[in-house]
Amino acid sequence: MDNVYIVDDEEAVRDSLSMLLKSEDFNTEQFSNPTDFLKAIDDLPEGLIILDLWMPGMSGLDVIEELNRRAISCPIICITGHGDVTTAVEAIKLGASDFFEKPFESTQLIERIKICLQEQKNQRQLDVYTSRAKEIMAKLTPRECEVLQGLVEGLRNKQIAYNMGISIRTVELHRVHVMDKLEAKSLSDVLKIAIAADYENIKL
């Protein structure tokens, strides 16, 4: 179940949103002020934040800035009062995913929450993949890297051997090692991993 954290000073808004989200099978947790939320966030599982921009004490913008400072990346959907467009725009600039003007339509909000959470999941997967790719790329020797470079550039073994001043046989040997280390079954697998690892020599 996905987590949604509601930060709003209005109890009615918090409560109604919570009920709505529960009806869509979200896990919700309510915070009546920004300070409590910021204290708790570190110990909370990942989730989406619904943030009221107009609260007494600390504004929603301050909360976003604080999250940025702590490098906590969660999708944030802001809810704003009527006509408070300037603040909303500011929030988006600071990294909020979207904003809704009160009163909002529940269906749209829920749709948006779902999309944001899906995007977050995708992002997480991509992150995992990238870090793994980087991890195995780091196992390659400099020579193997050079051969990989040649492969990424689409050179034939013969050309690679010529460029490196080694025999075709040796190139073939390196190539096998690279495939092994990257656990790749084909050349295209090798390329996928290199791209995911954001390999520095990839020039598209």
Partner: peptide
């Protein structure tokens, strides 16, 4: 802003 609060709640409750 003040009116939007109850309206938003009403909408959310009903929808839920």
């Amino acid at each position: 802003h003040e009116i939007s609060q109850p309206l938003a709640s009403i909408e959310a409750y009903s929808s839920a």
